[in-house]
């Protein structure tokens, strides 16, 4: 009888302890903070999305709520006009061509800098790395003159070289470090088999550095897609505008077509958000790359 009692007290005590531990491990205050911030972070996105499904008259009356009458009219209007598709194509072209060139030229350069290790190569490497700290915007005035001289103003060709130059410092930094970290026997084996250095680059190096290439691509994709500064300065011609530049012209002096504006904003944000949600790990790695070593 006595013995039983003691043991039951004991189990009671341990049970209490595990229960309090369990409650502690639920981290209720932490969840409150995170839920609150998640709400604050998502609210404008929600606001954007629901308002694209409202009629023009309803936006004014029913600002934050779900649409009373759901309509796809805004999207239909957007896709039936040809202008939006042109802007979209331009933005797409700019991103794809710039990214391709950054990866192509950057990986060639990194391949060389990782293998050719002399004072000159270190100097070139640091010359690129300094560029990570300096915003290309401060070169704008000279760039404007260069583009004028090259007769590239008002075409997408004024944007490609600027974005390529802007992306190269991080590309060279990340890729050189990555290639340097690869085991050297692989190239030497390829070399012994009689492959040329260039062949080794595209047959051995490129497949091996794919994760680093993805990081570089994402690091540059978001700022290029979202850039307003250079299109705003270099481009005024209607058929060469990027999506974001076109949006700025929708804000009229006297009246603004809010449904159209919001729908274009949503359509410009959507591709990147979807891409992010499908590969969020690489995104976070990419967007914080260059800052954390390794």
């Amino acid at each position: 009888m006595d013995k039983k009692n003691v043991s039951s007290v004991k189990t009671d005590k341990t049970e209490k302890k595990t229960r309090s531990l369990r409650i502690m491990n639920m981290h209720i205050p932490y969840h409150i903070i995170m839920v609150l911030w998640s709400f604050i972070a998502m609210f404008p996105m929600w606001f954007l999305l629901i308002n694209t499904f409202k009629k023009k008259t309803e936006i004014y009356k029913n600002f934050f709520g779900l649409p009373k009458v759901w309509t796809l009219a805004n999207y239909e209007a957007l896709f039936s006009g040809s202008d939006f598709l042109t802007y979209f194509r331009n933005s797409f072209l700019v991103v794809v061509i710039s990214l391709f060139m950054i990866l192509f030229v950057g990986s060639l350069c990194a391949y060389a800098l990782a293998h050719w290790r002399t004072k000159t190569s270190r100097a070139i490497y640091y010359f690129f790395v300094i560029g990570m700290m300096l915003p290309i915007k401060i070169a704008t005035i000279r760039l404007l003159q260069i583009m004028k001289a090259l007769n590239a103003l008002n075409t997408l060709f004024s944007l490609y070289p600027v974005y390529i130059a802007m992306g190269l410092p991080t590309a060279v930094f990340i890729l050189t470090e990555f290639i340097h970290g690869l085991p050297g026997e692989m190239y030497e084996a390829g070399y012994m088999d009689g492959a040329s250095r260039f062949r080794i680059w595209y047959r051995i190096v490129i497949p091996l550095i794919r994760p680093a290439l993805a990081t570089v691509a994402i690091y540059n994709l978001v700022p290029i897609w979202n850039d307003l500064w250079f299109p705003l300065i270099f481009i005024t011609r209607e058929d060469q505008k990027t999506v974001l530049l076109a949006v700025t012209r929708l804000q009229g002096q006297y009246s603004t077509d809010w449904p159209k504006l919001l729908t274009i904003l949503a359509m410009s944000a959507l591709p990147v958000i979807i891409l992010y949600l499908t590969m969020s790990k690489q995104f976070v790695k990419g967007l914080t790359a260059g800052a954390v070593k390794g």
């Binding site: 060139m101 030229v105 950057g106 060639l108 350069c109 391949y111 060389a112 800098l113 293998h115 050719w116 190569s121 070139i124 010359f127 690129f128 560029g131 300096l134 290309i136 401060i138 070169a139 000279r142 760039l143 260069i146 070289p161 600027v162 390529i164 130059a165 802007m166 190269l168 410092p169 060279v172 680059w201």
Partner: peptide, 20 residues
Amino acid sequence: WMRYVIPALVFYVIFMAYPM
């Protein structure tokens, strides 16, 4: 190795370092 480095250098110098 300069052959591999030059394309990147050209873009970087002409459109970033020099204008800056």
